[in-house]
């Protein structure tokens, strides 16, 4: 039984097959990357996995459970977290608040206990805070803790996205173009962090990425897509030299 299995996944948008019969398996503790030209359907696959879109065909199996039709807010509780390509942070809240929100899936307090702020709520809040502080330490975000997101530079926001996803204690982490908009140095940091996430935290990573240097540095397996269809799958080197992939990128 594989850790995360995507089986013949498809979706149509008004007759256009954005994703068409894509299948792959992600092994526990590995980094799996999806590459492909713009409009190949990479982010669409992420939106299908995080259940924002309803697939028109195929199945998603996570740890042996069929998750093809769970509602989107249940996905986080199952242990799948994601980041967004164009940053979807809660802009008018502090970084700390953003990360604390990610603990929502682990919330145990009821509305009325929160209304009175009972000691149990206070205790849970401190526990959430401790979990969040671990992630802050892990990603070196201490100095930005109290800043509002709107006042943070792009690179820090990108890291905050990663931090927020980690705060949900995921088993599977979906990273949507973690390096887009980052400079060379920040991209290198990102590569280290992804490796640390895999090796130190033991979290499986499913990633969409354009930067081939980053892809070959961290990925265990790579899937290349074009027009919603799989072109090739294998180790980073195999896929990069695959003739179909070369053609898709260079045209011809």
């Amino acid at each position: 039984m594989s850790f995360f299995k995507v089986d013949q996944l498809s979706i149509n948008f008004g007759g256009i097959k954005a994703v068409d019969g894509v299948s792959f398996d992600v092994d526990k503790g590995s980094v799996f990357t999806i590459i492909g030209p713009n409009g190949a359907g990479k982010t669409t696959i992420f939106n299908l996995v995080s259940r924002i879109y309803e697939p028109s065909g195929g199945r998603l199996v996570f740890e042996g459970n069929d998750i093809t039709h769970v509602p989107p807010h249940r996905v986080a509780k199952l242990g799948i977290a994601r980041t967004f390509q164009n940053i979807e942070l809660f802009e008018h809240a502090s970084l700390l608040q953003n990360l604390l929100l990610a603990r929502h899936a682990h919330k145990q307090s009821s509305f009325f206990s929160e209304l009175l702020f009972l000691p149990s709520v206070r205790r849970m809040e401190v526990e959430h805070r401790e979990a969040v502080e671990k992630v802050i330490d892990f990603l070196d975000l201490q100095q930005y803790r109290e800043s509002l997101i709107v006042n943070l530079p792009y690179g820090v926001r990108k890291v905050t996205e990663l931090a927020r996803a980690l705060c949900t204690n995921p088993k599977l982490l979906l990273l949507d173009e973690p390096s887009s908009g980052l400079n060379v140095e920040e991209t290198e940091d990102m590569a280290f962090w992804i490796q640390d996430i895999k090796n130190l935290l033991g979290i499986t990573v499913l990633m969409v990425e354009h930067d081939m240097k980053l892809v070959s540095a961290v990925s265990d397996r790579v899937l290349a897509l074009n027009y919603g269809r799989p072109l090739a799958q294998g180790s980073p080197q195999e896929v990069q030299s695959h003739p179909e992939v070369v053609r898709a990128y260079l045209g011809g």
Binding site: P72, H73, V75, A81, F90, H92, L101, A102, H104, E114
Partner: peptide
């Protein structure tokens, strides 16, 4: 408490809030 944070999250980005389990 978590409820207030969830409200703010909905205000700023519904989709992200949803993906974080709200």
């Amino acid at each position: 408490a978590p409820t207030g944070r969830a409200w703010v999250a909905i205000r700023d980005s519904e989709i992200a809030a949803q993906s974080m389990g709200v």
